[in-house]
Amino acid sequence: MIEVRAPGPYATVQDLGRHGYAHLGVPSSGAADEASLCLANRLVGNPEAAAGIELTYGGARLAFRAGAWVAVTGAPCPLTVRSPGPVADGRVGNGVPFWVAAGAELRFGAPSWGLRTYLAVRGGIAVEPVLGSRSTDSLSGLGPAPLRQGAVLPVGTAGGLAEISVDLAPPRSPRDAVLRIVPGPRDDWFVPEALAELCAEPYAVSQDSNRVGVRLRGRELSRAREGELPSEGMVTGAVQVPPSGQPIVFLADHPPTGGYPVIGVVRAADLPVAAQLRPGDKVRFSVRASR
């Protein structure tokens, strides 16, 4: 069991999401930065899809009632383990599996870059799944509630898991905040120069960004046609443009359907970059094909 002594600014349980229900109005949800959750799981010998904890801006304090192997990935936080008894606090690293003894508390500082930090624990967070997933969906409210002080999270059994065979994952450095996009499906709803406008200069990440989407401020994108687009299915990474002309990049908790045209979709490899953008960061778009 893990006791949440402090969740930090915002923390949730996340796995790889609930898929196959979008036609029933259910968002996919899941880790915003899937690559980081998968890595943390691999480091402790879990299946990649095991549930972990997604922190926003670090800041959490987690007490372990039983000893456990854990790994922390994503936005790198200063980490300390405070053990019971007269033992000095120990500094531990990101991207490595380490043991947290029973009764110890794991403390997260503020990340040096990025927004979302992932904790995997060997055995996985074993809250009750809803529609096949343990993810908190901030849009629809499905899944467990966001973590609150005093919440207790069960940890699954480590029986049958692979041995921990990795010592260290190379640290991920902050990547250039460039999001490569595939144009469409509704680029024809915009003036012909809109894609060039989108890619011309950086956009600033707005305060009201969240797990639903990264809201951006910058050049307005002009429509070539008036009227309303009939509601249609939306994918993660869709760059949706509401009437304000200011784009929104959809993240994991995006609504499964929407009525604003999508000028382009962020390439899958760049979704972790989008998920790590902080309010105030600058981000650029590119339509060049991947190298």
């Binding site: 196959g20 036609h23 249609e232 299915g233 994918v235």
Partner: peptide
């Protein structure tokens, strides 16, 4: 089209989302 995709789902299709004038296939 949604019904056809359910009856004969191509391999690898995770989500099929019908809309008023579209069907999204993920």
């Amino acid at each position: 089209l949604d019904a056809l995709l359910r009856a004969r789902r191509p391999a690898g299709v995770v989500d099929v989302v019908p809309g008023p004038e579209t069907v999204l296939v993920v």
